[in-house]
């Protein structure tokens, strides 16, 4: 991964500049090793693999995406709304994880797992009786929200994180704060 695009940049090194309420929630997010409360052990195993594959996490220092989703569902911090043809989010997670289990996801190789995930994204219509596009949206919405709430992810993308009360003094194209680090691979447009 492109961890070295912003060499020396570390969002957490700025935490003394954060207001106490924000520092409280962000630091709790990274310090708490949470017990799973919503997913059953079977669901937990599948959710962990699924989320790691969705976010390309294979190294040692992984962001605990599945645990963060578990906490959100346990605390009923969902968005409230649901599609008329989908169950509410918590149940939708349970149903889709059960469907993956049926498909032997847990015991498959990484390559096979990626293929199974890709099949959901590619499906035109239903997947295990649910609208595939909405299953895809559920998974990616929750996984991305968890992952990009984590300071390690902010560091990876050069985002400066919480900004109160300090704010920014150098906004504008190619301008940086003293603590921000220039992208060392600016031509690395991944799709070029």
């Amino acid at each position: 991964m492109s961890a070295d695009r912003f060499p020396g940049f570390d969002v957490l090194s700025q935490r003394k500049h954060w207001d106490p309420v924000t520092a409280g929630v962000v630091l709790e997010r990274i310090s708490n090793v949470r017990d799973f409360r919503f997913f059953t052990p079977d669901e937990q195993a599948i959710a962990t693999v699924l989320c790691d594959r969705l976010l390309g996490q294979d190294g040692d220092d992984r962001i605990p995406v599945a645990a963060m989703i578990d906490a959100r569902l346990a605390e009923e911090q969902t968005d409230g709304w649901r599609y008329a043809d989908m169950p509410e989010d918590g149940q939708a997670w349970r149903d889709t994880l059960a469907a993956l289990r049926e498909d032997g996801f847990a015991d498959a190789t990484e390559k096979e797992q990626d293929a199974q995930i890709q099949a959901v994204q590619d499906a035109d219509d239903k997947w295990h009786g649910l609208p595939a596009a909405r299953v895809w949206s559920l998974w990616t919405r929750y996984a991305c929200t968890a992952f990009y709430a984590h300071p390690d992810a902010w560091t990876e993308i050069g985002f400066s994180g919480p900004a109160y009360p300090r704010g920014y003094k150098n906004a504008g194209v190619d301008r940086r704060e003293p603590f921000e680090v220039r992208d060392h691979q600016p031509g690395e447009d991944p799709v070029r």
Binding site: M1, L54, L55, G56, C144, A153, I157, E188, D189, P190
Partner: peptide, 11 residues
């Protein structure tokens, strides 16, 4: 999604 998403995001 996966590694591709992360790379894109790093931009």
């Amino acid at each position: 999604w996966g590694g591709k998403l992360r790379e894109y995001m790093s931009d």
